[in-house]
C-alpha cells in the first residue's frame, strides 16, 4: 500500500461505497420476495395452529386484525397481545372464534427464564385457553379457567392479564 495524498483516497472510498450500494440493491431485489413470503408463511403457521381448518388469511394493517378463512368463510379473528413478563415483553397471538370463545393462544416471542417462566410457551399451559369463554380468562384462584404454573407466577399472570386486556379492547369488532 502506498501513501497517497489528495483526492484519490476519497475517490476510492466513494467508489467502494458505490459498489457496495449496487451490490446491496441487487441482493435486496433477489431476496425481497422470499423474505415477504417467509414472513407470511410464519404467520400462516401460527394462525393455522389456532384455526386448524384455515386455508387463507387476511390482515388489516389499520386495526392489526388477522381474519382466517376456510373456503372463503371467516373463522373468527386473531390479533397480537403484548404484555410485560419476568424478563421482558411477551408477544402473544390470540385467536377468537365467532361465537366469542377463545381459539387458543400462541406465544410468538418471550424472554422468560428457561424451565421456569418459559413454560408459558408449552402446550400444557397454552391449551388451557382453548375453548374458554371470554369472561373466564382469569387464573383459577380468581374464579377463572386458567391454572397457574408453580414458580412461574409473574409470567403466567402477565400472559393472562395481557390476553384479557387485548380481548376486551377488541370486543367492539364483534358488534
Amino acid at each position: 500500500m502506498t501513501q497517497k495524498n489528495g483526492f484519490l483516497p476519497v475517490l476510492f472510498l466513494t467508489a467502494v461505497v458505490f459498489v457496495s450500494v449496487v451490490a446491496l440493491i441487487a441482493t435486496d431485489a433477489i431476496t425481497r420476495e422470499p423474505i415477504a413470503a417467509a414472513r407470511r408463511a410464519a404467520i400462516y403457521r401460527r394462525l393455522q395452529s389456532l384455526f386448524p381448518t384455515m386455508d387463507d388469511f387476511a390482515y388489516d394493517e389499520e386495526s392489526g386484525l388477522y381474519t382466517p378463512f376456510s373456503e372463503g368463510d371467516p373463522l373468527g379473528l386473531a390479533f397480537m397481545a403484548y404484555t410485560r413478563g419476568f424478563g421482558g415483553t411477551i408477544a402473544i397471538l390470540v385467536g377468537l372464534a365467532a361465537d366469542r370463545t377463545l381459539r387458543g393462544i400462541e406465544i410468538v416471542s418471550h424472554r422468560e427464564t428457561p424451565g421456569l417462566g418459559a413454560r408459558i410457551a408449552e402446550p400444557a399451559f397454552r391449551d388451557l385457553f382453548i375453548g374458554i369463554e371470554i369472561d373466564d380468562i382469569a387464573l383459577s384462584r380468581d374464579g377463572g379457567a386458567i391454572d397457574g404454573i408453580t414458580a412461574a407466577t409473574i409470567s403466567v399472570e402477565a400472559v393472562v392479564e395481557g390476553v384479557r386486556e387485548a380481548v376486551s379492547a377488541r370486543l367492539k369488532h364483534f358488534e
Binding site: 410485560r84 413478563g85 419476568f86 424478563g87 427464564t113 409473574i154
Partner: peptide, 8 residues
C-alpha cells in the same frame, strides 16, 4: 442480576 427480573 437475575433477581431484578419481574421488578417492573
Amino acid at each position: 442480576f437475575l433477581g431484578f427480573g419481574g421488578m417492573i
